[in-house]
Simulated assay, not measured.
Amino acid sequence: MSVCINLPSALEAHLRREVVDLDQTAKEALLIDLYRRSTITHHELGLTLGLDRFQTEELLSKHGVVDDLPSLDTVMNQAARLEQLRAK
């Protein structure tokens, strides 16, 4: 499958001068965004980019994607529980 992004020619020329591998950079950006949205799995991300598990983790870390962060619901529940304990 191919995905095509149409850019104005001047912008494409500028980006190709500035970005070492624009096609790979765009592919990584799309896939990392899909991973962040839970549209694809960690395994699918690595498989698509040809990375092993550790390389995939390194790439995600490089882009600030951290899986061990608690969800907003978890944080809110913990805050409510702490408030209950403090009120006792």
Rank of each mutant, 00 (worst) to 15 (best):
T25Y: 09
L69Q: 10
D52S: 05
Q24D: 14
L45P: 00
H14W: 10
I5A: 10
H63W: 01
A87C: 07
P70D: 15
T39V: 04
M1C: 02
Q78E: 14
H43G: 07
I40S: 01
L34E: 01
Q84M: 15
M76P: 02
T74H: 06
G50S: 06
E18S: 11
R53H: 10
A13G: 04
L82C: 07
V66T: 11
V3A: 13
K27P: 03
L31W: 00
Q55A: 11
S71A: 13
A80P: 00
L47R: 15
V20L: 12
L45A: 11
S38W: 06
A10M: 14
E44F: 00
T25N: 02
P8C: 13
R37K: 13
K88C: 09
N77W: 09
H14D: 15
D68N: 10
Y35M: 05
L60M: 14
L15A: 03
Y35R: 04
D73M: 08
C4E: 09
L7E: 02
A26D: 01
D67Q: 13
L82R: 08
T56L: 02
G64F: 08
D68Y: 05
D21V: 10
H63K: 14
Q55M: 12
E12W: 03
Q78R: 11
E58K: 15
R37C: 08
L59P: 07
G64S: 05
A10I: 12
A26V: 13
A13Y: 02
E57A: 03
G46D: 00
D52M: 05
R86K: 12
L51E: 01
D67P: 02
V75I: 12
S9V: 09
L31R: 03
R53G: 07
I5S: 03
L85K: 03
R16I: 08
L69A: 08
L82I: 06
A10Q: 11
R53W: 09
H43D: 07
D67H: 05
R16H: 00
V75F: 12
E28C: 12
K88G: 10
L34G: 00
S2F: 10
L72G: 01
